[in-house]
């Protein structure tokens, strides 16, 4: 249940402004080089003074994505450099945390750059709490989104006005995790495996999936009136017979209809994801993924040929259709 008292308290932080938080160090070559090395960035603008001067800058400049880095507190996350505000500009997070929302993730970072900053310049930011949401339920858990706007400036010598160089919208989600931690046991892979949904297999449809395993596209046939049917079912719709067998289809057909899925993107599928309703030459229709075709090339009536694709360490075989010449 959402806690109205908490909500009132944290909503009161909206619009609150906080004073300066200084950078520990002026923009400097060693931190830039270290950062570029980790990111795999080789642009000489950040490391070669001559190059930077030729490009019109007074010295090497900081990579723009480093803007936030300069004012990070460091190992002790509450240890702001001398001259900084005594207030904690993220105090609203502490209040939310005290109500049991112990986890935090960053969800948005929007950086805007008025200009690049050069070696030797010292930054500070001031901040404003832009928005605190009511309690939201997400895949991670329930909690509150908190958006803070930081304005970055360069400090000038006495008598000259400081200059704004950039702005950042930073949004975090402070939440109670939906699932409790599951300790890893003896597995090397850290990545939760996202797999395709497995087909629901019944006594009526088992032949179809076993056929796929064997590289055959099997279609159910009424053993009495010989009518073909798909998807598999226990009874013939035409003569109501319970007797059936199967025939192997040629795997050739045409595109009866199709849809191209764009959103939401659900792993492990590739997007855009074209899915076809395929009419086999034998006369029945089935739904299957389409491969090897650009969306713009797909045409109703397009000739198609089945192929069998194996997924998930070969444990799942699915029929897919590929366009072929008319």
């Amino acid at each position: 249940m959402a806690d109205q008292q908490l909500l009132d308290k944290i909503k009161a932080f909206e619009g609150r402004e906080y004073g300066r938080v200084y950078a520990w160090d002026p923009v400097n070559a060693p931190m830039i080089r270290h950062w570029c090395e980790m990111m795999g960035i080789t642009n000489p603008l950040y490391t070669d003074r001559e190059f930077a001067r030729e490009a019109g800058y007074p010295d090497i400049v900081a990579p723009p994505a480093m803007l936030q880095v300069w004012c990070m507190a460091g190992l002790d996350m509450e240890n702001y450099p001398p001259g900084s505000t005594d207030e904690n500009s993220f105090e609203v997070l502490k209040l939310i945390e005290s109500h049991g929302f112990e986890s935090v993730v960053a969800v948005n970072s929007d950086l805007k750059f008025d200009r690049y900053v050069a070696a030797g310049e010292r930054l500070y930011y001031t901040s404003r709490v832009d928005a605190v949401t009511e309690e939201k339920a997400t895949g991670l858990g329930t909690g509150h989104f908190v958006t803070v706007i930081m304005t970055y400036s360069v400090e000038r010598a006495e008598g000259r006005e400081d200059e704004k160089v950039g702005e950042q919208l930073f949004r975090v989600f402070k939440f109670k995790p939906a699932v409790r931690p599951k300790p890893e046991t003896g597995t090397d892979s850290a990545i939760p495996k996202i797999t395709r949904p497995r087909p629901g297999i019944s006594d009526d449809s088992r032949f179809f999936w076993e056929g796929c395993e064997a590289g055959k596209l099997l279609v159910q046939r009424c053993a009495d009136c010989q009518t073909l049917r798909h998807p598999p079912a226990p009874v013939c719709a035409k003569c109501h017979s319970f007797n059936w067998d199967t025939v192997e289809a040629s795997g050739k057909g045409h595109l009866y209809s199709f849809v191209v899925m764009h959103y939401p993107e659900i792993p492990p599928f590739e997007y855009p994801n074209p899915v076809g309703l395929v009419e086999l030459d034998e006369g029945v229709r089935l739904i299957a993924g389409l491969v090897g075709a650009d969306r713009s090339e797909l045409q109703i009536g397009q000739r198609l040929q089945v192929e069998f694709a194996r997924f998930q360490d070969e444990e799942l075989t699915l029929p897919q259709f590929r366009p072929v010449a008319q």
Binding site: M38, M39, G40, N43, P63, A65, V69, V179, A190
Partner: peptide
């Protein structure tokens, strides 16, 4: 893992840096 993750996870500032690299 105490936080519920299977392993260490990338911070947003690194992601921003990699985005800069990709575009640049």
């Amino acid at each position: 893992q105490q936080l519920g993750s299977p392993h260490v996870f990338m911070n947003i500032l690194t992601t921003t840096g990699l985005v800069q690299r990709y575009v640049e």
